[in-house]
Nucleic acid binder design. Structure first.
Lengths: 191, 191
DNA sequence: GTCTATATACAGATAGAC
DNA sequence: GTCTATCTGTATATAGAC
C-alpha cells in the first residue's frame, strides 16, 4: 500500500475513534509509520486530510435495493433489515458522523447533506411501499404512510443509538428490531 | 455572581457546544472575564473543571412522576410525554452527554452510570404499567411488556436524535410523537 | 516522495506579587 | 482571590536536504 493510502486509513480510524480535535497528526504519522511532513506534503493541512477522510468514508454509501416479487409488508421488513444491516456493518463511520452532527458549529459541508438525503430517501421509500400496499390491498387503509414511515425510521435510529450508548443493551438490539417488525409491520398487514 | 460560578457556567456552555477537547481554558477565561490562573486556582486542572461541570449538569435529573387516577394506557401516554418534555427542556445537556457517550475512550465515570440508570428505570416503569394494564384488563394480552417498552424507548430516542441531526425534520418531532402514541399505545388498548 | 530539523503558536499549568 | 508573567510541552505547519 502506498503511503498516501496508509495515511488516509490511519486517519480514518483515529478520527472515528477519537474525533477530529483529539487526534494529532503526530499520532497519525506514528501509527502510519511515516513522517509528519509527509502528511502535509500529501494533504496540505489537517483540515484537508479530514475532508478527504470524510469523502472517502461516505463514498460507498448507497441504497441499491431489490424488492422484486415481494409483498409490501415483506418489502417493508426487507428495507428495515437492510437499514439495520447497513448500520451495523458501518458502525464506526455511522458513529463518527453522528458525533460530528452533534457538535455545534459542525462543518457545514455538502457531504452531510448527502447523508441526510440518503436518510430522507429511505424514509420516502418506506412511505411509498406502505402506500402501494394500501392500493394493492396488502396494507390496512387506516395507516398514514408518511407518519408511519417516520415512526419506523425513528425506532430504527433509536435502536442504533442505544447500541452506541449502552455497553450491553437490555433487551438486545436484535430483540427490539424483531419487536419493531412485529409491531409496526405485522399489525398493519392485511391477510 | 461570584467568579467561581461564572467560570462554571461559561465552561458548561462551551463544553456542551464544542466538546471537551476543542474548548480551551483561554477561551473559558476570556468568556468568563477572568484570568486563566484563576481557573486553576479554583479547579486545579481542566479535567477537574470538567468533572464539576458534569456533576452540576446531571444533578437536577430525576424522575418524580404522578400517575394517580389514570388508566394504564393514559399512564403510558403521560410517561411518554414526560420523557419527551424532559428531553426538550434539557436539550443542551442531553446533547452534551450523548456526544460524550459516542466518543471511544469515553470517561468511565460513575456519573454516566446515573444517566443509564435513569433510562433503565424509565423503561422498566413503562413495562410495569403495561403489565399492570394486562392484569386489570385495559391492555391487550398478546403484548410482550418488556419488549414493547423497549420499542417505545427506542422510538422516543430516535425522535430525539433526529431532532439533533436535522435542522427541520420532516415530519416534525411532534407529529412523530403523536404517531408513536397512536401506534404504540392506542392499538394495544382494550376498550 | 520522503526525510530531519526547525519555526511559530497556543495549550495546560506554575510562580509570585498584590 | 485575583492578577501578570512565565514555564513547558505539543500542536500545526515550513524549509530544505536527499
Amino acid at each position: 500500500m502506498d503511503a498516501r493510502t496508509k495515511i488516509l486509513e490511519t486517519a480514518t480510524r483515529l478520527f472515528a475513534m477519537q474525533g477530529y480535535d483529539s487526534t494529532s497528526l503526530s499520532q497519525v504519522a506514528k501509527d502510519a509509520s511515516v513522517s509528519k511532513a509527509l502528511i502535509f506534503w500529501h494533504f496540505e493541512t489537517k483540515e484537508n486530510l479530514f475532508q478527504e477522510v470524510v469523502t472517502r468514508t461516505i463514498a460507498p454509501y448507497s441504497l441499491e435495493v431489490d424488492l422484486e416479487g415481494l409483498s409490501e409488508p415483506e418489502q417493508l421488513k426487507k428495507l428495515i433489515d437492510l437499514y439495520y444491516e447497513f448500520v451495523t456493518q458501518n458502525l464506526y463511520s455511522v458513529r463518527f458522523f453522528l458525533s460530528l452532527f452533534l457538535r455545534e458549529g459542525a462543518r457545514p459541508d455538502d457531504l452531510f447533506g448527502r447523508i441526510l438525503e440518503l436518510h430522507e430517501l429511505y424514509r420516502k421509500q418506506l412511505g411509498e411501499v406502505i402506500e402501494r400496499g394500501q392500493e394493492r390491498g396488502t396494507v390496512a387503509r387506516d395507516v398514514n404512510p408518511p407518519a408511519h414511515a417516520a415512526l419506523i425510521m425513528s425506532a430504527l435510529n433509536g435502536i442504533l443509538v442505544q447500541g452506541f450508548v449502552w455497553p450491553t443493551p437490555t433487551p438486545s438490539p436484535d430483540a427490539t428490531l424483531a419487536q419493531l417488525k412485529a409491531t409496526l409491520v405485522d399489525t398493519i398487514q392485511v391477510q
